[in-house]
Computed example of a mutant assay.
Amino acid sequence: MSTPAPENLSRRKQLVRSYQMAKKSDPRLGLWILGATLLGAAVGFLVIWLLPGDGWISTVFTVVGAILTGLLGGMTVFGRRAQRAAYSQMEGQPGAAAAALGMLRRGWKVDPVVAFTKQQDVVHRVVGPPGIVLVGEGSSPARIKALLTSERRKHERVVAETPLFEVVCGREEGQVPLPKLVKHVTKLGRNVKPAQMTDVLNRLKALDANRSNIPLPKGPMPTNMKGMRGNLRGR
């Protein structure tokens, strides 16, 4: 029996699945959530209790406020630690950078594996406010650099006027660690207006149409994290 896709699960089941996956690499996750919930409830209770007011209505507001702040604290800690656990589980797997880039919000277009080697060194492409970002990942910095250089030349032929950035995801010197990849990409600036992106994407479609139909590299690809992001934010 196949496992249902995350988008086909109810929000409650998605939360349970996210918790179960995160707990594998973060055994104390439950204690952290409980502690944050109790601390948030205590702070919320104290703050609202100190506000002017009296009678049963004030008591109700105080209790409800404590519960809500407690839940907010617990969910905040859960979201952060679950995301950290997800990165920890993905790091080092082929395609991990593509899964992390799936966390980018609207206004970004991510194309996983636009180029690769037989050794599973890959280049992903991101189009967004900074321009075009080519993200490389793999086991050999030399092969990744050569692959990025090749892709840069191909892209410059069709979108020469669009800013183009190269990023290597990894833990070696000069590389960007997986947990910091999305933040790094979003801080590259705002050089392309939304109206210009349509033209850029159309030109890239022409570039991709001329690529050889070579099969994608074999091996498991990590689950896209976009569902987890939306789920933890209540979307």
Rank of each mutant, 00 (worst) to 15 (best):
S2C: 13
S2Q: 15
L9W: 10
R11E: 14
R11C: 14
R12S: 14
Q14K: 14
Q14V: 09
M21P: 00
M21V: 12
A22Q: 07
K24Y: 02
K24P: 01
R28G: 13
R28S: 15
R28V: 14
G30C: 07
W32L: 15
W32C: 13
L34Q: 09
L34P: 03
G35F: 09
G35Y: 09
A36F: 13
T37E: 12
L38A: 15
L39P: 05
A42C: 08
A42W: 11
V43C: 07
L46H: 09
P52K: 11
P52E: 08
G55I: 08
G55Y: 07
G55N: 07
W56F: 07
I57M: 11
I57N: 09
T59F: 06
F61L: 13
V63S: 10
V63D: 10
T69Q: 10
G70K: 08
G70A: 08
L71Q: 11
G74V: 01
G74R: 04
M75G: 08
T76G: 12
T76E: 05
G79E: 12
G79R: 14
R80K: 12
Q83S: 13
Y87C: 01
Y87P: 00
M90P: 00
Q93T: 06
P94Q: 04
P94Y: 02
G95A: 08
A96P: 00
A96D: 01
A97T: 08
A97M: 11
A98W: 07
A99G: 02
L101E: 02
G102W: 03
R105P: 06
G107T: 04
G107I: 03
W108I: 03
D111A: 07
D111K: 08
D111Y: 03
V113G: 02
A115P: 00
F116C: 05
K118A: 15
K118W: 07
D121Q: 05
H124M: 04
H124D: 07
R125L: 12
V126A: 04
V126R: 03
V127M: 08
P129I: 06
L134N: 05
V135W: 07
G136R: 11
G138R: 05
G138K: 04
I144A: 08
K145F: 12
L148D: 02
T149C: 11
S150N: 12
K154W: 03
H155P: 01
H155Q: 09
E156K: 15
V159R: 11
V159K: 10
A160F: 11
F165R: 03
V168T: 15
E172F: 12
E172C: 09
E173R: 14
E173S: 15
Q175F: 06
P177R: 00
L181T: 00
V182Y: 00
L188I: 00
L188S: 00
G189C: 01
G189Q: 01
V192I: 14
K193E: 15
K193N: 10
P194K: 05
M197W: 04
V200Y: 03
L201K: 02
L204C: 01
K205R: 13
K205Q: 12
L207W: 00
L207E: 03
D208R: 08
R211W: 00
I214V: 11
L216S: 04
G219F: 01
G219N: 01
G219Y: 01
M221S: 13
M225Q: 08
G227F: 08
M228L: 15
R229C: 05
R229H: 04
R229Q: 10
G230I: 08
N231G: 10
L232Y: 04
G234R: 05
G234E: 05
G234D: 04
